[in-house]
């Protein structure tokens, strides 16, 4: 009944964001396609301003646990068909990526250590065709960074920066604070607080998230 109410009021009130939790799976997929969004794991809905990854945006994950959060952020989009390019993350633990649900057959690893002068052009070439690009150390001039961000927007790709952004223009930052690991024989999972910052993140509360859950899915606890 609630869902039908939502459907009735939706046409006139399209501007009001409806929480993804209230929408059926099919409606969610339609909404994502219409509004240029890429799906994200349920537990991270509350962490992102529109409950999903926005195409054209540059995200940043910082803090201890940034790599895992980056995997968790892009996992659902990649498992639903998008390709993932991981640029300059030479120590990426791919088993960990797979644990978060990333389909490794659609993963490309790129190393630009020998061509740092062409980094922004390389990234530009990648965002042209690859939906999700994750990078660890964006280093380029301010002008190039602006052009690259514009290209990300034009190509509707998603860029995720792990760690320090070195003045690269970032739209949304997910800052991890106070990770607390629980041990049960060995380390099992950790509880982290994620604070969302950025110009679209007004009034968003810090969220408590478990990374990873035992069935390899993220679980959100109440804050």
């Amino acid at each position: 009944m609630f869902a039908t109410m939502v459907n009735m009021i939706r046409p006139g009130l399209a501007a009001i964001p409806i929480s993804p939790h209230l929408m059926s799976g099919r409606d969610l997929a339609e909404r994502n396609a219409e509004h240029g969004l890429l799906p994200v794991n349920n537990a991270l809905h509350a962490v992102l301003p529109r409950g999903a990854l926005e195409r054209g945006c540059v995200y940043q994950c910082t803090g201890v646990g940034a790599s895992s959060l980056a995997w968790a952020l892009v996992a659902r989009a990649v498992s639903e068909g998008s390709w993932l390019a991981v640029v300059d993350v030479p120590r990426a633990g791919l088993l960990s990526a797979r644990e978060y649900g990333i389909a490794l057959e659609r993963l490309l690893c790129i190393d630009t250590s020998r061509v740092t002068a062409h980094w922004s052009r390389m990234m530009g070439a990648l965002v042209d065709g690859i939906d999700v690009v994750v990078t660890a150390s964006p280093r380029c001039s301010t002008a190039d960074a602006r052009k690259l961000a514009a290209r990300v927007k034009a190509q509707s790709a998603v860029m995720v920066v792990i760690g320090n952004s070195y003045d690269f223009p970032v739209d949304i930052t997910l800052r991890i604070a106070s990770p607390r690991w629980t041990f049960s024989g060995h380390a099992r999972q950790r509880e982290v607080t994620i604070v969302t910052e950025g110009r679209r993140a007004y009034g968003m509360q810090p969220q408590l998230v478990l990374l990873p859950q035992s069935s390899h899915q993220l679980v959100q606890t109440t804050c």
Binding site: I110, D111, T112, R114, H118, R121, M122, L126
Partner: peptide, 13 residues
């Protein structure tokens, strides 16, 4: 495209 930018870029799977 990425390879055409510079041949020294390493792309691996």
């Amino acid at each position: 495209l990425a390879i055409s930018v510079h041949a020294d870029v390493e792309i691996t799977v």
